[in-house]
C-alpha cells in the first residue's frame, strides 16, 4: 500500500515527508504499540516495508524508527507533535503522518486495506 493511500484512508495530516517520492513508497506490514521496546523486539524483518503506528508523540518514537530503519511513523488519536520532533523526522529521513483515528480504528482500516502484521 502506498504511503499516499495510507494517508488517505487514515485521513491523516502529512507532518513530515522524507523526500520527493515518500508518498509513492509501498508498505505491506504494520506494528502498532505505545511501548517502544515491543517495537524493537517485534520488528525484525523488512523494516523498509513496515509502518509503526503509535500514540507516543515524543522523540523516542522517531529514535525507535531510526534504530530499526523504519521510514514511516503514523501518530494515532489526533495527537499533535511538537515542531522539534517533526524536524527530527525530517532530519532522519522518516515520514510522519498524524491520524485522528484511535489505534484500534487505524489498525482495522489498514487491515481491511490488506496491510498485515509483522511476522
Amino acid at each position: 500500500m502506498k504511503a499516499e493511500d495510507i494517508a488517505k484512508v487514515l485521513k491523516a495530516k502529512k507532518l513530515s515527508l522524507s523526500g520527493e517520492y515518500a508518498l509513492d513508497k509501498e508498505y505491506s506490514m504494520v506494528f502498532a504499540t505505545d511501548l517502544m521496546s515491543d517495537a524493537l523486539a517485534m520488528i525484525q524483518k523488512a523494516p523498509e516495508e513496515t509502518v509503526l503506528l503509535t500514540g507516543l508523540c515524543n522523540a523516542q518514537s522517531l529514535r525507535t524508527a531510526q534504530m530499526l530503519d523504519l521510514e514511516l511513523v503514523v501518530i494515532v488519536r489526533g495527537k499533535e507533535l511538537n515542531e522539534e520532533v517533526v524536524r527530527m523526522g525530517s532530519d532522519l529521513g522518516i515520514s510522519i503522518l498524524a491520524t485522528p483515528f484511535t489505534m484500534y480504528e487505524a489498525c482495522g482500516i489498514l487491515y481491511r486495506e490488506g496491510m498485515r502484521s509483522v511476522s
Binding site: L35, S37, D38, T54, N58, Q60, S61, T64
Partner: peptide, 27 residues
C-alpha cells in the same frame, strides 16, 4: 525475563518500561 520491569512513570512516558530491554539486548 521478558516483561519484568521496575521502570518509573517517567520511563513509561518515554515509551519504555515494557520489560523488554535486556531481553532485546541479549537477542
Amino acid at each position: 525475563t521478558p516483561g519484568f520491569s521496575t521502570a518509573s512513570k517517567k520511563a513509561m512516558e518515554l515509551g519504555f518500561g515494557a520489560g523488554m530491554g535486556l531481553p532485546n539486548i541479549k537477542r
